[in-house]
């Protein structure tokens, strides 16, 4: 696997996360494109933050969490027990909803990460402070009071300080968990500007519930709903031309309805000629407007969706049941709409 050069930094494979008995993420598989801004969108409580924090294993801190599946960061499975968490986390800067400055001076905040990783050289620390405060666009605001308490900064400055602090450990990835939600519009704008300026150098993943922010910043969009990955793709496609009903409803600000399943077909146990017959039969019986759920093996999925039989139907959603099986939910329509 390591031989493939064009691998993305972060690849998620069949990731499921539970808190106790509640399933928060359901078989998520996705590649996060490098050196781009990826926005994870979706209504509250749909697992956005959990997905984000699974990238640097901060979800480990939650009580009663259990994770299955894999997350590869630079080809290393980070849920492998042998993975060194502190090194993994060093590769990702985190901006949380509310800026969390550490109880020390501005200077010490920036070099905190370097210090915990053992950097002692005064010159290197000084250089890092200047460089990363400049990258976070706040050097001129604070250069004369580097040794005063960081808690005295305004909340917008605190968030930029957190950005500088995250950049100082030399990450490849920046994770932002609704990083502008606690800020005033001007500070939020400054943070957004920073992201746009930094995206050539870093892979940025943002959780946001602000659709306009996703439109302004994102190159790639991931839509989660109730722990399921509904849709992901380039931002223009997902935001302007969503493929699935739920994405469309969310983008238009409508209530997201679970379709009522009227017919179901399990293709898992059927082999080729029978499966085709069963499909033809069920499509014939299905009335206009009715919803059908087909359970299919992962490898037959693409063939199934592209088959001419499906042409008269709208695919509402494709849900992964586990690593090998998926559910396709489709509705029969009158016109010729197909995907």
């Amino acid at each position: 696997m390591a031989s493939e050069v064009s691998q993305n930094h972060i690849r998620v494979r069949d990731l499921s996360v539970r808190y106790g008995s509640t399933r928060v993420l359901n078989n998520i598989s996705i590649d996060i494109p490098d050196k781009k801004i990826t926005a994870i969108i979706g209504p509250s409580g749909c697992g956005k933050t959990t997905l984000l924090k699974s990238f640097n294993r901060l979800i480990d801190l939650q009580e009663g969490v259990s994770v299955s599946g894999q997350v590869f960061v630079d080809d290393e499975d980070i849920y492998d027990p042998k993975t060194e968490i502190t090194h993994l986390r060093k590769r990702m800067g985190l901006l949380s909803q509310r800026p969390q400055v550490l109880p020390m001076s501005i200077y010490e905040n920036v070099v905190y990460g370097l210090r915990v990783h053992g950097e002692k050289s005064k010159e290197k620390l000084n250089a890092a402070v200047e460089r990363y405060l400049k990258e976070a666009h706040m050097w001129h605001e604070v250069k004369d009071r580097l040794h005063t308490s960081a808690a005295k900064l305004s909340i917008g400055q605190q968030q930029r300080l957190c950005l500088a602090r995250g950049l100082a450990v030399g990450p490849e990835v920046i994770l932002g968990d609704e990083p502008t939600s606690a800020l005033d519009p001007i500070s939020a704008e400054q943070i957004e500007q920073r992201f746009l300026a930094l995206k050539d150098k870093y892979t940025i993943v943002l959780v946001t519930h602000i659709l306009r922010q996703a439109r302004r910043l994102a190159d790639y969009v991931v839509f989660l709903y109730l722990g399921n990955l509904i849709e992901h793709g380039p931002a223009e496609e997902v935001l302007n031309n969503p493929r699935y009903a739920k994405t469309k409803a969310y983008l238009e600000g409508r209530f997201i309805e679970e379709p009522e399943i009227e017919k179901e077909l399990d293709l898992i146990k059927l082999t080729f000629p029978e499966s085709l017959k069963a499909l033809e039969k069920v499509f014939k019986e299905l009335k206009v407007g009715q919803v059908l759920r087909i359970v299919s093996g992962e490898k037959n999925l693409q063939g199934l969706i592209r088959s001419p039989l499906v042409a008269q139907h709208t695919v509402l959603e494709i849900k992964k049941r586990d690593a090998l099986t998926s559910e396709v939910i489709m509705q029969k329509n009158e016109g010729g709409y197909s995907i």
Binding site: N56, L58, L61, T86, H87, L88, R89, K90, M92, G93, L94, S96, Q97, R98, Q100, L102, P103, M104, Y112, G113, V116, H117, C162, R165, G166, V169
Partner: peptide, 27 residues
């Protein structure tokens, strides 16, 4: 002490002990 403070220290790659020593005890 707010959980986020711990989280931000750990997110920078600090160990729990470093976080306790440098951040939690200080606060």
């Amino acid at each position: 002490i707010p959980f986020g403070v711990r989280e931000s220290s750990l997110a920078l790659g600090a160990t729990s002990w470093q976080t306790t020593k440098k951040v939690i005890l200080k606060k």
